[in-house]
Amino acid sequence: MAEIILKKGKEKAALQRHPWIFSGAIETIKNKPENGDVVKVFAFDKEFLAYGYFNGQSRVAIRLIEWDESRNIDEAWYKNRIKQAIASRKAILDKHTTTCRLIFSEADFLPGLIVDQYADFLSVQILSAGIDKVKATIIDVLKDELKPKGIFDKSDAKAREHEGLAIENGLLWGENPPEFLKVKENGISYNINIADGQKSGFYCDQRDNRSILAKYAKGKKVLDCFSYSGGFTLNALSNGAEIVTCVDSSALAIETLNQNVLLNKFDATKIISIQSDVNKQLRAFKETGELFDVIVLDPPKYAPSRSALDRAARAYKDLNRLAMLLLEKGGLLATFSCSGAVDIDTFKQIIAWAALDAGKEVQIIKQFCQPEDHPIRISFPEGEYLKGLLLRVL
């Protein structure tokens, strides 16, 4: 096994169980590891720190996975990690909820591995060279532990490019999922598209927040922006929203949302679905004087890295400013960011700027976060990517 010695003083993060070591922290590499190999990492004084995946072309040169030197990183190690992650989610899955995240990368000590369960199928994202190298082992363990009908590879994220990996999208094992697969979340049914849908096929990280927000929708006129397959829309309708307007730029998302309304036997006259760029549509509503009681903003990741933070802040500010101008006095704005580079304090500051530009007084009445199947390791705060605020706009 190759050995890596860190520069003097660069061992602090590893000692604190943070899983990332950047290329600039490396002093010496012994035995020339290949990308994806497991390596032993030592401090400058030769003290063992951890095992990790090496990648010589990534800015994150080593992703740490194990801090106990006596443990072998073999098939049994992977099986134990995967079983542990699956067992911790058992309380979530029942007859009312048949989808959740089973493995969440660094949070489950498997950096670069995402596994989502969708009824009898699994959607897998492999985002690191280390996990890619043991893909066959991962698939075998998932087959044995969960006995799914099929395992589908959704490794089409740009993150793979940073690891020197090609985009992958296709069947890994078993049956192909149907074009529209029925799952349940909090008793509401969804037809989701794994193969062509966004991310792994569905955003189960908003499960709790959809349920919370639905309580405020009864009898209200709701605008759901970046509505995708209709998570916030369906929950609002289930709790008696007067009417919900949904906006998404994707034709497939709008088609899936409309199917999900029918699937749940909701009144189709209570939904208006619009395929459009959200910012453009918000400006159109402003021109026509359209107002809403509740608005949901759940945009894509505007800041994939800290270098994009300034640009993302401007985008978040403008989006929220437009939404605030479309609310009835005292209306509610549920606004989210899934950008890990934007922490909650920064997000609150952006909202304050948006309120100032909109000429509105705003109260924070609730704070949203990611659910228990997206846990946050205390030593890895970067795992806390989803944050949101429920605002009353006065």
Rank of each mutant, 00 (worst) to 15 (best):
V115A: 13
V115S: 12
D116E: 15
A119I: 02
D120T: 01
D120P: 01
F121V: 09
L122Q: 12
V124R: 09
Q125N: 10
I126E: 10
I126V: 15
L127K: 13
S128M: 04
K133N: 09
V134P: 05
A136Y: 00
T137F: 04
T137Q: 11
I138F: 01
I138N: 09
I139W: 07
D140N: 15
V141Y: 06
K143P: 13
D144I: 00
E145L: 05
E145R: 02
L146W: 11
F152N: 14
D153T: 13
D153R: 11
K154N: 15
S155T: 12
S155Y: 10
A157Q: 12
K158N: 14
R160S: 13
E161P: 11
E163M: 06
E163D: 07
G164V: 06
L165S: 11
L165Q: 13
L165V: 12
L165C: 14
I167D: 12
I167L: 13
E168T: 04
N169A: 12
G170Q: 08
L172M: 13
L172G: 14
W173S: 15
W173D: 14
W173E: 12
N176C: 07
P177W: 05
P178R: 04
L181G: 07
L181Q: 09
V183E: 01
V183D: 00
K184R: 04
E185I: 10
G187C: 03
G187F: 00
I188G: 03
I188F: 03
S189K: 06
Y190N: 05
Y190F: 14
I192T: 01
A195Y: 12
D196T: 09
G197I: 04
Q198S: 03
Q198E: 06
Q198K: 04
K199L: 09
S200F: 05
S200Q: 14
G201K: 10
Y203I: 03
C204Q: 04
C204V: 13
Q206T: 11
R207A: 09
N209M: 10
R210A: 05
R210D: 08
S211N: 14
S211M: 14
I212T: 15
I212Q: 14
I212V: 15
L213A: 15
L213P: 06
A214R: 08
K215F: 07
K215Y: 07
K215H: 14
A217W: 01
A217P: 03
K218L: 03
K218F: 05
G219D: 00
K221M: 04
K221P: 00
V222F: 01
L223S: 07
L223N: 06
L223M: 09
D224W: 02
C225D: 02
C225F: 06
F226T: 02
F226E: 04
S227C: 15
Y228F: 08
Y228E: 02
S229Q: 08
S229R: 00
S229A: 10
G230S: 03
G230L: 00
G231E: 02
T233F: 07
L234V: 04
